[in-house]
Design a protein around this nucleic acid. Sequence first.
DNA 1: ACTAAGATGTTACCTGCGGTAACGCGAGTC
DNA 2: GACTCGCGTTACCGCAGGTAACATCTTAGT
Lengths: 215, 215
Amino acid sequence: MDTTQSTDQERSADRRRRELLEAADRVVLRDGPGASMNAIAAEAGITKPILYRHFGDKGGLYAALAQRHTDALLDSLRAALDAPAERRERVEATLDTYLAAIEARPQVYRFLMHPAEGGQPGGDQGFDVGKHSAPLLRRMGEELGKVIEDRLDLGPDSRRLARIWGHGIVGMMHAAGDWWLGERPCTRAELVRSMADLLWGRLAAAGDKVGGPGF
Amino acid sequence: MDTTQSTDQERSADRRRRELLEAADRVVLRDGPGASMNAIAAEAGITKPILYRHFGDKGGLYAALAQRHTDALLDSLRAALDAPAERRERVEATLDTYLAAIEARPQVYRFLMHPAEGGQPGGDQGFDVGKHSAPLLRRMGEELGKVIEDRLDLGPDSRRLARIWGHGIVGMMHAAGDWWLGERPCTRAELVRSMADLLWGRLAAAGDKVGGPGF
DNA sequence: ACTAAGATGTTACCTGCGGTAACGCGAGTC
DNA sequence: GACTCGCGTTACCGCAGGTAACATCTTAGT
């Protein structure tokens, strides 16, 4: 039958695609985001043109690779966000989930967030990430915004406010996490608590220091 | 005299350097962050090796270029942070200053934050930013952290808390600003107010929506 | 069973990038 | 006048992303 044939072909192509993605994953994990198409092809046991037939260009491969990890991370975050507990606990759980993820697989994280960075050898013109650097942040921001809008009563303008907060909180999490991952100035739990404190208004509640007009 | 000579030379070299930086600036503003060394050299009316003699490598040029803008922006932010007003007003002024800056010169902003992004032509392997993508965020985070630590009374752990908050707030500002700059979902003033509200604990204060366990 | 088609994979090549070595040249110095 | 030395050039290397053209193996049709 024609349909079964095309189905088989499609399935085979899909499997191939998955295999290639996994190979790319391994290489990126090993060589960092600066991995070259040649290296990925070699790891997959094939040559460049095949990669290009499957993914169009490097951006396509990147996008596919990024989406897998992004989806996985977003699932974890949604789970933490949906846990049965009170708000502060959920927020802390979500922050902790994110931080645990980037702590467990920093290479993946660097790949998703920072285009090119690894590689002491000469030409390290990264993984042409370009416009694909933001998507993870954007997606997380949008998702969180939706959740906030769905569950919180923010009066009028709730939609706008929720989206702003979504992106803002995600950005806070990201920047603090990135800094923390680099300098490791404290425990993960401490970082989580401190960020939650910030979100809980401790900035506004703090007193001025003696002698100054305060921040 | 020998000293005057060397001084003259240094001054001349510095002037040259400034000229080159301004040329690079023009190119980056025109072609986006994907500007090539050849293009920059051409704009400056010279050839590549001279650029390399002055800045070592592309990272050096980027770093020099970035530092100029970063310094300028940080000065503005410090000014807003030091204005004589109460805390909330200062926070809003600082946020607004940042947003105004990225709104006024988005090209510069994209250059500082996002490595490579412009360029429909074939090879657009960006402005090998790599490790130099974060510095602006890091610097802003550190500076804000210091200010917070200096002026707020946060009890014990104040140092750690202040730094975390510094990086977190900067990240919030950045992510929300980036999103806002792309989608323009609201006024700058509205964005500022909303972010300040978030920092002032409205997230914790908001009530659950009817029917759900709340966020 | 033989052929036609189409996916699968290869080699060999192009362009453009960052980066460098080797040379040319004019201005001051002894 | 030879000598250095900063400024500038041309010509080149290696390597990246990306592509064209060729080889091959599977599979369907008659």
